[in-house]
Amino acid sequence: MPRLTKDDVQPVGFKLNGRPVVVRVTPRTLLTDALRHEIGATGTHVGCEHGVCGACTVQVDGEPARACLMLAHQADGCDIRTVEGLAQGDALTPLQEAFRAHFALQCGFCTAGILMTLDALFSRQPDADEDAIREALSGHLCRCTGYAPIVQAALTARNRIKGGPIDA
């Protein structure tokens, strides 16, 4: 394998919300920076760049992952899903609707990451109980809501989507 220097720009190809994308970035470019500043998909947010806040959470091949802890090159060939890929057209998903109905967001900065985590949880575990939901949420920091409305929204969404695909 050729040794790359920090300045070598190489193409990286992955699927973003179902569409193929190619970005040309240096080896050290973070996935967050590639998504936000190369592709312009700014829905994924950056709160700490050290893996604690969860704001940057995306789905990599269906699993939630912190995009700030991934290099863009690690996404090569992967299926990446971000908050922009949740709603189909103008219609919000039941999860997004539940967040709106329960006032589970204020500034919305943490929200994208939380939605991606819950979306992944419910696809894997449509009947996740409150403990499982809290466990999943515990990897996310929200400074605005005090969390209770987020838990409520997640429970409502789960009840609506139980048994069905999240995007139905």
Binding site: T42, G43, H45, L92, Q96, L115
Partner: peptide, 14 residues
């Protein structure tokens, strides 16, 4: 909310 829930917020870095 619809914009914020869909990744269409416009924060400074966006």
């Amino acid at each position: 909310d619809p914009a914020l829930l869909s990744g269409r917020g416009r924060y400074i870095d966006d």
